[in-house]
């Protein structure tokens, strides 16, 4: 499966480069790492990685299914100038609290540089006062898509 995946990327990379050269839209590579961390010890109890390509303005949606909560996160990248990008993070979370189903929606934005690591906590961060529980953390790195062969790991 892995070989197929990389062969696939290699196959489509000329097309993506073509898209980059021949349209106004810059192609971006998103490296996404979802981590569930213990609030007090910071131990990572669950870790999932994904990689995705997109163009400016086209959102990337993640659905996180955690059993007693569900989160949908939509990331969109916009160029500001050169390597300066704007990252828009829209999130909707559904969870159970005190026997009731709750839903919260939000939109956040941050200016970042291509290649800079950014964190998104769709459920927020546990308060300093009370660290029992877990933090759900998305680590993201957005870089401009380069014309390089995909490296096998």
């Amino acid at each position: 499966m892995r070989k197929l995946f990389f062969a696939f990327c290699f196959f489509i990379s000329p097309l993506l480069i073509f898209a980059q050269e021949n349209s106004d839209s810059q192609v971006y590579n998103m490296d996404i790492d979802l981590m569930i961390q213990d609030g007090s010890s910071a131990q990572v109890v669950s870790d999932h990685k994904a990689q995705h390509q997109t163009v400016s303005g086209r959102p990337v949606t993640l659905n996180i299914n955690g059993g007693n909560f569900k989160a949908a996160v939509r990331f969109t990248v916009y160029p500001i100038q050169a390597d300066n990008l704007l990252l828009l993070a829209q999130s909707t979370i559904v969870f159970m609290k005190e026997g009731h189903r709750r839903m919260l929606s939000s939109a956040k934005s941050i200016p970042i540089k291509a290649g800079e690591k950014v964190l998104f906590f769709p459920m927020g961060v546990l308060n300093d006062g009370d660290k029992t529980g877990y933090n759900c953390k998305l680590e993201m790195e957005i870089s401009k898509y380069q014309n390089q062969p995909v490296v096998q790991e």
């Binding site: 999130s91 941050i110 964190l119 998104f120 906590f121 459920m123 927020g124 877990y134």
Partner: peptide, 18 residues
């Protein structure tokens, strides 16, 4: 992800540079 029943704090989402 594995269900972890104490995950929900539902604070304001945070988007921040590492």
């Amino acid at each position: 992800i594995p269900a972890i029943n104490t995950i929900i704090n539902a604070e304001e989402p945070l988007l921040i540079r590492e």
